[in-house]
Design a binder for these strands. Sequence first.
DNA 1: TGCCATAGTATACAAAAGGATACCTAGAGG
DNA 2: CCTCTAGGTATCCTTTTGTATACTATGGCA
Lengths: 116, 116
Amino acid sequence: MSHECKVETALDILVGKWKPVILFNIFQHGTLRFSELQRLIPNITKKMLTTQLRELEYHDIINRKVYPQVPPKVEYSITDYGKGLTPLLESMHEWGLSHIAHLDKIYGENNTEKSN
Amino acid sequence: MSHECKVETALDILVGKWKPVILFNIFQHGTLRFSELQRLIPNITKKMLTTQLRELEYHDIINRKVYPQVPPKVEYSITDYGKGLTPLLESMHEWGLSHIAHLDKIYGENNTEKSN
DNA sequence: TGCCATAGTATACAAAAGGATACCTAGAGG
DNA sequence: CCTCTAGGTATCCTTTTGTATACTATGGCA
């Protein structure tokens, strides 16, 4: 039947504590070096940044360009294929915005914490 | 500016090993009892089913209707608000399908495992 | 009296994800 | 020859998620 739900496949590439914010920044700036990402995302460790970038690279969402220099220079950018994510990310962002408003309506504005 | 990325908010309500398949089933069947969900989702434990359902309920995606009987009867259904998720879920499903094809093209069909 | 059913809780545990910290490389500048 | 730099690894530890298993409540039925 092939009607299997593939929502999880889409989820997979976005899940991870830092992937959305990494993508957001690369989308915004076009191209970013590793150290620029580190600056833009306070609190992220090199290890986390590396693993999340590698996962996105594996999925062909971002491109990793190494300049053979010392000290090293590595630039990350969205692949052409990765740009196809834009509509989906925008839908999710829109839905997220309105959902925050909805939760406010239900539980009140003063509920900053998630009772998840 | 309020241009903050709210993709994570959308992500939040879908993350959890079982949420997509739970939603999928309730969407398909309209209304399902706890035990019916258990049957439809082999391997899920009562505890996981309970916690995932409670999280979805907190977000007003599903409705929990308790019949005061013995033995207990509890029915779960999508709320009207929750139905607003449909377009997003469909976009994710579509993207997921084409992404699987894309990965196949890159890494070959015989790569069932994720090198995530 | 004892057993069945449903929709859970409680407890203990295993696995996965994430975090902190130290270390590595090799050339440029002092 | 010491130190700085950028972009990482390696190792160990903590937190979060998920799993397994046993237990509970209540009324109807034999």
